[in-house]
Amino acid sequence: MFAALMLVTGVAALLLAAWCGWAASRDQPTKDWHFIGMAVVTVLALVQLIAGIVLLARGEKPEQGTTIFVAYLLGAFACVPAAGFMSLAERSKWGSVTVAAGGVVLAVLEVRLYDIWGG
């Protein structure tokens, strides 16, 4: 289940990145619909954070260490909201570029989380 959640979160992050990248290519800032998309991706990352903590609490151990796994979980959770807040400060196409970059970073973090867990 955890691997499926990683996959869904990574794909959602890439879709968000493509959507915001499209907006940036048209010289548009992030709009309300983009923030709804960011909220959906953030909720997926929150569910993943909770699931990871539950797995650790049940006694399961990641292959490459608990500390690095928790650090990546927290980073994945904070990635898109941080990009969203930064896009609020930059109300031009560069705000959309920032969110697109945040989506790509989250997708890369998902791949790394999969590796750390032992996938």
Score class of each variant (00 low, 15 high):
residue 52 G to I: 04
residue 44 L to E: 11
residue 11 V to Q: 15
residue 112 R to G: 03
residue 88 L to E: 03
residue 31 K to D: 12
residue 111 V to W: 06
residue 19 W to M: 04
residue 93 K to D: 07
residue 89 A to M: 04
residue 79 C to A: 15
residue 16 L to R: 05
residue 45 A to L: 01
residue 69 F to L: 00
residue 83 A to T: 01
residue 14 L to R: 14
residue 34 H to P: 00
residue 59 G to H: 05
residue 5 L to Q: 15
residue 112 R to E: 15
residue 45 A to K: 03
residue 16 L to G: 02
residue 85 F to D: 13
residue 65 G to N: 12
residue 4 A to V: 03
residue 112 R to A: 13
residue 63 E to L: 13
residue 43 V to C: 14
residue 52 G to L: 05
residue 92 S to L: 02
residue 14 L to M: 11
residue 89 A to W: 01
residue 51 A to K: 07
residue 60 E to Y: 06
residue 43 V to P: 13
residue 88 L to H: 05
residue 37 G to D: 03
residue 117 W to Y: 12
residue 32 D to R: 15
residue 71 A to H: 12
residue 24 A to G: 03
residue 61 K to T: 14
residue 36 I to G: 10
residue 42 T to V: 02
residue 24 A to T: 03
residue 85 F to K: 12
residue 78 A to Q: 02
residue 107 A to Q: 10
residue 110 E to L: 10
residue 81 P to L: 03
residue 99 V to E: 09
residue 26 R to M: 08
residue 38 M to Q: 11
residue 34 H to V: 02
residue 32 D to G: 14
residue 72 Y to K: 06
residue 28 Q to H: 12
residue 14 L to T: 08
residue 2 F to P: 05
residue 27 D to T: 08
residue 93 K to N: 08
residue 7 L to M: 13
residue 39 A to H: 10
residue 49 L to C: 01
residue 90 E to N: 13
residue 115 D to F: 08
residue 48 Q to L: 09
residue 40 V to P: 10
residue 5 L to W: 13
residue 93 K to M: 12
residue 108 V to F: 13
residue 45 A to M: 02
residue 103 G to E: 07
residue 63 E to S: 15
residue 57 A to I: 03
residue 58 R to G: 00
residue 116 I to G: 14
residue 98 T to Q: 14
residue 56 L to D: 00
residue 48 Q to N: 02
residue 108 V to D: 08
residue 78 A to Y: 03
residue 65 G to V: 12
residue 89 A to D: 00
residue 6 M to P: 05
residue 23 A to D: 01
residue 69 F to P: 03
residue 96 S to A: 15
residue 49 L to M: 07
residue 49 L to D: 04
residue 69 F to E: 00
residue 77 F to T: 09
residue 13 A to H: 05
residue 42 T to A: 05
residue 14 L to H: 07
residue 24 A to F: 02
residue 106 L to A: 08
residue 99 V to S: 08
residue 95 G to A: 06
residue 46 L to T: 08
residue 59 G to F: 05
